[in-house]
Amino acid sequence: MPARTPGRTDGRTPAPGAANAPDPAPAQDPARAAAEEHFEATLAREQRIEPRDWMPDGYRRTLVRQIAQHAHSEIIGMQPEGAWITRAPSLRRKAVLLAKVQDEAGHGLYLYSAAETLGADRQDLTERLVDGRQKYSSIFNYPTLSFADVGVIGWLVDGAAICNQVPLCRSSYGPYARAMVRVCKEESFHQRQGYELLMTMMRGTQAQREMVQDAVDRWWWPSLMMFGPPDADSPNTAQSMAWRIKRHTNDELRQRFVDMTVPQAEKLGVTLPDPELRWNEERGHHDFGTPDWDELKRVISGGGPCNAERVERRRAAHEDGAWVREAAAAHAAKQAERSRRAGKEQAA
């Protein structure tokens, strides 16, 4: 029998942003001590923590922050690609792109639901996003300038996301891990679709090949930044790994992505814009240059080319839709009242 929520004083209302703050541990409370022991033992056995299990406040806060950030990234990530749906140059590409952007909305939904199992509320998380209190992946603050960007986002951005997310399928929090299994499956399909578009374009006209190379040049470094700052500068990694939320460091995942992508670039016939990129026989990995970490900091803190418009678009959709959501709630309440009255009359 798992130990369940002794006293439930573990902070059902998460405070994202206060992640990793030490829990005030009442060491003398035996029920709490047993719960903690059970939590640690579950992690040690590589089993899953489920929504009703006791968990430390910091674990809950870290997860809410991470899952919300991930959900926000899916939703904001609809914008750069969504901008090309109406202009897709064939009806098949239009259908593929529309289906992909629809999948991203679906991923956002699963992830917000996973966050809700931790006591968070989708509406509240959305407000945190549009108020700039919660972040999303910095990659979506770059513009999409040609249709080749759609392919390159599929190949590189979804490819990087998959590297980040496949280990999360083994994350210690059950609902998150299960959501990630489904997300990863779909993302890997998106990645292949993107790569297939680029292959087709590379076999096309000279202008198409130039478009692809230009898009690769623009997206390569931002894609490497998707793994976050270098390990030495990533304060939350150690705790997240101890909690088995995270499985690998940022630098390990970045290396994996580079090693995976280089042969794909060769096959495609594009050049990755890094003069330092070469195979290192001794390490058994590719060496590569250092991303511009100042740029990453700048983009994360709001100074990227599209930060303001991405958040503004989301804010506008949320606010413009308020009357619709209010109407749906009002209608549901009226319907419930009508059923209640009808039930009463029937009883009388």
Partner: peptide
Amino acid sequence: LAQWCTHAPELEEEVALANIGL
């Protein structure tokens, strides 16, 4: 319908309108 994409009042409507468009 594709022009609604990223403008819909709720995420469920994003999914539904895209579905209908498809």
